[in-house]
C-alpha cells in the first residue's frame, strides 16, 4: 500500500499563533504570548520555554526577524520581533487555506440542510 503525503505542510499551532500575533505590529515575547491567547479565545496559552523555542525556529526559517526597539521606553532588555516578507507570505498562504476550508464547510452545511 503506498503512503499519501500532503502537498501543503501546515505550520504547527504555536508557530501559526506567533505569526498571527506579529501580523498586527512588532512585539516582544510577552506581548506575543498575550495576543496569541486573545486570538484563540484563551485556548492557546504559551509558556516561556515553548514561546522562545518556537521563536528560535521561526528566526532560523526566516519567517520573523528581530528589530531594535523604536523608543527608549520600549527598550530596556526586551527583544522585539516582526514578520519578514517570507513570514507574511507564509501567513497569508495559511489563512487562505483555512478560509477555503471554512467556505467549503459552509457549502456542505447548506447542502445537508436542504
Amino acid at each position: 500500500m503506498s503512503s499519501m503525503k500532503r502537498n501543503l505542510e501546515l505550520l504547527p499551532q504555536v508557530s501559526f499563533s506567533i505569526l498571527m500575533a506579529l501580523s498586527l505590529r512588532p512585539r516582544h515575547g510577552y506581548e506575543i504570548m498575550k495576543q496569541a491567547e486573545e486570538d484563540s479565545l484563551g485556548k492557546v496559552k504559551l509558556a516561556p520555554g515553548t514561546l522562545y523555542g518556537t521563536i528560535k525556529l521561526l528566526l532560523k526559517d526566516g519567517l520573523i526577524e528581530e528589530i531594535m526597539p523604536r523608543s527608549s521606553q520600549q527598550s530596556g532588555r526586551r527583544r522585539y520581533y516582526r514578520l519578514t516578507k517570507d513570514g507574511w507570505d507564509r501567513l497569508n498562504a495559511e489563512l487562505e487555506f483555512y478560509d477555503n476550508i471554512v467556505r467549503i464547510s459552509k457549502k456542505r452545511s447548506a447542502f445537508e440542510r436542504s
Partner: peptide, 13 residues
C-alpha cells in the same frame, strides 16, 4: 541566547 528573555517573560506572567 534567550535566558534573559525567558526570565523577563516569566516575570511579566
Amino acid at each position: 541566547d534567550y535566558g534573559e528573555q525567558l526570565v523577563l517573560t516569566a516575570n511579566d506572567m
